[in-house]
Write a protein that binds this DNA or RNA. Structure first.
Lengths: 227, 227
DNA sequence: TGCATCCAACTTGCATACAAGCCGTGCACT
DNA sequence: AGTGCACGGCTTGTATGCAAGTTGGATGCA
């Protein structure tokens, strides 16, 4: 990067990232954690003023987020935060199940110790999760995402991996409303992760896929249960 | 989402669509049919001048197309037409197989004559394809897309349907280089479509999924074969 | 009260201006 | 010849101004 002339003025806005990236990150973070609730109408001006940038980069961010299916741009009206449809949790679950199980089976065809290196990566993620658990479960969601993503990535299909990322974004948006960080639940998830990783390590990808299915199913049913 | 099928070479710039939409359609059409080849560096100015609009809407279109994975924006350098990677055809095929077969099986769970109405829709598409065949195969690609999309849509998962659309865009981009409109091939495809539709109509979604798998496999292998 | 209408305050859509980064070219100097 | 460097022409990034569409409420009228 360039030497970043020490403006010193607005250190609140980390220059170095583009204004467009700033706006994208700002809005997306709020979309995913629910601070921008479904049904809300966002205005370019509002965001632009809050970030002290012009409408142009904000507009770019909006367009990008629309393409990701998180926003809907209504001409001359505003940007609607796409409401979470009733079936959305089901759809996300179904798609995750489809892609993750497929990837789990597919990872075995990579040959050359692909399963072993996947298992190693998973073990690292599990270690993170144990740390998160010890600290009250704060960072678990992120590490959970990394764990599952590693499996999908091991499937070796870039397109599916990309689609999976979008799926996890949506999942996160839903979970922001639903999930309580219950340590006992997290503990169970981590235990299931261990079993899955062990199955991969043992080279039994079919067992891994099966365990993964049960794991996803369980998490999904938990999230459906009223609290 | 998908661009309009065939556009004439020098279409009059129809005001009524927004300039941004115009730019999007213009660029996307060329990305999909290969006129903008992979590896090319597009400039906002060039497109803007050709369309007689400013850079602003063109930029929007670029951002959107980047989100779809067709373009990569390099800061202060330009917009790179994403090259078709060697594995891309495999990845698209694998993802299509996964989603379409899943949807085929899933369509049966819709209940209430879901399979029957799907079969009816498919029959209409097949009729279009017979027409296309009679006219030399020109419009087949689009009708083929509609046929398969109907199956995916019948799966009832909006997220997967959305992802499938993106998949077909990529497929089209690849096929633009590969496919020759060989009437005998098309005839075979249409015949397979008939079998698939018949299986749905008979309520045998498992057979349909199986036929669909063979159909996709066959098309994929044909496209791999050097001509 | 009920209803049509107008208006003011929003919104986005787009064009344009300008700043700033990247790159190849050609010149000067060693 | 080879090396460094400045410069000009390209590119994008962003701010801003203005036009135009939408909306909701105040207002006038029956």
């Amino acid at each position: 990067m360039s030497p970043a002339p020490p403006t010193g003025e607005h250190e609140l806005l980390p220059r170095g990232r583009s204004a467009a990236q700033l706006a994208y990150d700002y809005v997306k973070a709020r979309l995913l954690d629910g601070r921008f609730a479904g049904g809300t109408l966002l205005s370019e001006n509002e965001i632009a003023q809050r970030l002290d940038v012009s409408r142009t980069p904000v507009r770019q961010a909006f367009v990008q987020l629309e393409a990701e299916g998180l926003l809907e741009l209504y001409p001359r009206r505003g940007a609607l935060v796409v409401p979470i449809s009733p079936s959305e949790a089901e759809d996300v679950f179904e798609a995750r199940m489809l892609i993750e199980q497929h990837a789990a089976r597919r990872a075995a065809t990579g040959g050359g110790g692909a399963l072993a290196s996947l298992a190693a990566a998973l073990r690292d993620h599990i270690a993170d999760q144990e740390d998160a658990l010890a600290e009250g479960g704060a960072g678990f969601a992120w590490s959970d995402r990394a764990f599952h993503r590693a499996i999908v990535e091991a499937g070796g299909n870039r397109l599916l991996t990309r689609q999976y990322d979008g799926l996890r974004d949506r999942h996160q948006r839903i979970a922001a409303v639903t999930i309580a960080r219950d340590p006992s639940r997290i503990e169970r998830f981590v235990a299931e992760h261990r079993e899955i990783a062990a199955a991969f390590k043992a080279g039994d990808e079919e067992l891994a896929a099966s365990l993964l299915g049960a794991h996803l199913q369980g998490a999904h049913e938990l999230s459906r249960r009223p609290r």
